[in-house]
Amino acid sequence: MSNTLPPAAGGEVSPATADPALAEGGGTGLWKDAFRRLRRNPQAIAGAVIIGLFLLVAALAPILAPFGGEELPGRTEIRPTNIPGPGELPEYPLGLDRFGGDVLSKLIWGAQASLLIGVISTAIGLAGGMLLGLLAGGLGGWVDSVIMRFVDILLSVPNLLLAVSIAAILGQGPYAIMIAIGVSQLPIFARLLRSSMLSQRGSDYILAAQTLGLSKRTITMSHLLPNSVGPVIVQATLSLATAVIDAAALSFLGLGGGLPQTAEWGRMLTYAQAELASSPYLAFLPGACIAITALGFTLLGESLREALDPKTRQK
């Protein structure tokens, strides 16, 4: 389920090639300028507010949640035919689930689980992908060919299937999901960084650095890499949205491991299936949480892309 977003208006993901003189500190820096423009973009603010709120809830889960994530306080209140819904019992404002868990508490703990899985798996993909991309783009030659063929192979399998296959080896559980999603995202980062580096290679400032007699390593690490990393960072923000959705999908399919009542948004949806007619809120609340989190990361990522795009930068 990779939703690598196409750019909103025209053009490809352009590397953050602003004037290198600007990027190197003279005048307004690229990132400083991007940040200034982000602050003025309502879309970016909306995204940041959403993500900020969810992060806050995740961080304060132990204080905010009335019950523990795996606790079943309402065990005695539920009957197979009657699960108290939102507002029916004052101590459970968003109702109970089929196990007797408090839905509000599970949503709050679920925020922690989902964001953690999303961030860590994207970090794995980013680190791995950047390493491969850096080796391929920096060294070139046969290293480049081997790495890119490997990336092609990974790309020939749909993302979710790739993640599932990896999870099958690692066994079920949150760590398996993190690694599986991380690896399935790795090819995008590798490709982006490599192509971004290749497009920078012919730039004047690289030529200048070569003329100065700088070593290849210095040029790659302190000139090529910092100037090529823009699109990768944009993609990472967008990938966070995909990671949250994919993590939910994997645990929806039952790869999450642990207890059935574990507080995880995707898992809550798995068990909502049977009660869809009588207790639709069991599906709608966690589903909405996944969608809103993904929306937040997407809004932020798209605004970042616009802010870094040299085509719109001069405004």
């Binding site: 939910a248 869809l276 599906a283 709608f284 996944i290 993904a294």
Partner: peptide, 26 residues
């Protein structure tokens, strides 16, 4: 249409399936 497509991209397939099933089949 920009807003609609944004929603379309961020909503998980299985959640959308639930919504449709609930609305038009239940």
């Amino acid at each position: 249409s920009v807003v609609l497509s944004l929603i379309g991209i961020t909503i998980p397939v299985f959640f959308l399936a639930f919504i449709l099933k609930y609305l038009f089949a239940i």
